[in-house]
Amino acid sequence: MDKYINTPITAEKTEELKSGDYVYITGTIYVARDAAHKRMIEALERGENLPIDIKDSTIYYMGPSPAREGQVIGSAGPTTSSRMDKYAPILLDLGEKAMIGKGKRSPEVIDAIIRNKAVYFAAIGGAGALLSKCIKKSEIICYEDLGAEAVRKIEVENFPVIVVIDKNGNNLYETAILKYSNY
């Protein structure tokens, strides 16, 4: 089913999202990959604050290619989420509600999704040019020295994603395959 939602994605909104839904997201989201996640978690361990407002946040796992003059951002598709699995449960427990990436998640992440009524979306891997068109604004907010891996805040408009793991832990990667195996 096609759905349109605005950020912040709250527990009320994840209530409505079911594994397999096609969702268009509009609003502000953060962008971070593994190097940035590692630094954020290290900051927490040192007792420092996170550089982002984590409550009801959406984090997109992505590292763009450089923008040409006049472009908001370069190619901007999802990266493999499993590299964030080590860090994601900590951020979910602190209030992160939605993650956008591609690929499988660990049982620990799935548990944290259920525990926090969160959601895991997949964006289309390898569609970076298309997805960049849905990004209307982009600013680096910290860790600029990480280059493509710096943390960004972006504004998206009708950004297309699919609910893979919903707040009940239903996992499209497992269910969809069964439907088409030996088709």
């Binding site: 590292g63 290619s65 040409r68 598709g77 289309i124 970076g128 040019a129 969809a176």
Partner: peptide, 26 residues
């Protein structure tokens, strides 16, 4: 859903070509 994705990947290739954005950010 598979067709929808393959269709979007076609659009992606077109945008990459016309607007000079790499097909994939990686």
């Amino acid at each position: 859903i598979g067709r929808k994705i393959l269709n979007q990947l076609q659009d992606n290739l077109k945008i990459a070509d016309e607007e000079k954005i790499p097909i994939c950010q990686d």
